[in-house]
Design a protein around this nucleic acid. Sequence first.
DNA 1: ACGCGCAGCGTACAGCGTACGCTATGATAA
DNA 2: TTATCATAGCGTACGCTGTACGCTGCGCGT
Lengths: 248, 248
Amino acid sequence: MSPAEHPPFLGAWTDPPEESRSPREPLSRNRIVAAAVAHLDAHGAEGLSMRTLAEELHTAATSLYRHVHNKGELLDLTVDALMAEVALPPDDLDWRASMRMVSLNFRAVLLRHRGAAVLRGTRLAIGPNTLRLMEYVCSKLLEAGFSETDAAAAGATVINYTVGCVLGEVMPTAEIEASGYTWDQFAAEMNTRIAAIPLDRFPVMRRMLPMLLGHHHSQPFEYGLDALLEGLEVRRVAAASSESPPAG
Amino acid sequence: MSPAEHPPFLGAWTDPPEESRSPREPLSRNRIVAAAVAHLDAHGAEGLSMRTLAEELHTAATSLYRHVHNKGELLDLTVDALMAEVALPPDDLDWRASMRMVSLNFRAVLLRHRGAAVLRGTRLAIGPNTLRLMEYVCSKLLEAGFSETDAAAAGATVINYTVGCVLGEVMPTAEIEASGYTWDQFAAEMNTRIAAIPLDRFPVMRRMLPMLLGHHHSQPFEYGLDALLEGLEVRRVAAASSESPPAG
DNA sequence: ACGCGCAGCGTACAGCGTACGCTATGATAA
DNA sequence: TTATCATAGCGTACGCTGTACGCTGCGCGT
């Protein structure tokens, strides 16, 4: 039973490169999704193909289809998997602090996974982790006194605002990475592109575009978020007081 | 010179189907972009290929490249072209009414062109029409008394909120159209999918998901928009009063 | 009348998602 | 132990994509 006993016409016995001796843990949805997240993080939203993904998993492209109906489903699973990373605030915070924190955490996760963030903007992926997040947001709003209609609107508002902002923040940097520029080169390029456009039709933008594109830090995001929450609070107390006016 | 004089071995003389007698107006960026918008409106974000687009223009695919560097540029031009449709409010409105109106108009345009709306969420297209819109928003905010930093943040907030919401509204309907379901079938499908998920872990969502997905009307959007504007107003007056405190 | 520039196009290629059917492996029944 | 069978994995192939390249033929300047 020693290796030498194998008939030579089958070829010299060499250990098959390593994968069949430690028989490589089997494929699974989770392993595939994890690899997809990693690939998106490393190489951005473009250029994730079933073939390259399979290669990273030391597998054939078509093998993936045993675990995933099609690429679309894989992307949806990937988006939902990301949502699991969003930490939910502790229970004792009031609704406003909770929404603030969940929005910031959400944004942080999306910025940590810029490639997948674009997908979250584009695809409707309602999986368990997404539901967990929305469940938290809506129930917190309900228990704070928002009506069902208002809670739905307010929750959607917070989430949509967050996603919209992250897309706005991610797109420029995605563009930059794609073009191989540095931030400064890109800013210069932008300036020349602005200068090229009918010259003085946009005096304000000429000064402010860098500010609008260069969301490196979270200050503008928080500015809008806090404004939004403040407005929601006003509506909440207004609704609460008009709900039981005879008591007044 | 009558048609009958043409030598028969070239085939019987029939008018070349019509395109070479009225020699079809020449290709141009504008014509291509217009066709792209039309195609996106008619067939959704998926399935816009250079070949199909060329076919609609009675042209070969590669001819398009005489007027457009690549597909990406075409998509950017398309998005920017859409922005021209956003009507700007009359001059005499105050900043809040202006922002409200520009946001509603913006949303209306994106909903009118659902296919292209997804692109606006994904691509960074800074063309003249986009700049015109941002120029208006920012200058209105500046003249209302926002500082440059705050105007940039507030403007970005309004725009990003609008885009984020529209994406949230468009995605479900896009999903529906793609799957060929009706709205009711989709709702039912969603309910079964929710029911399939670990059953009672999401009691709130079970009731509220239809509300969250079924944004047929603009009420939730306006709810959040008005809240946002109210919060921005609070910040504006606070900044204005703290800017000249010695006068108090 | 001639020549040239350039819009338009035909062909070709690499890469994509994925349907289909074979193979080999590991669990189960006898 | 041997025989059976389900199924994970894979090789091949098809139709589609974006687009590089080089030809063609029309329209304008001379």
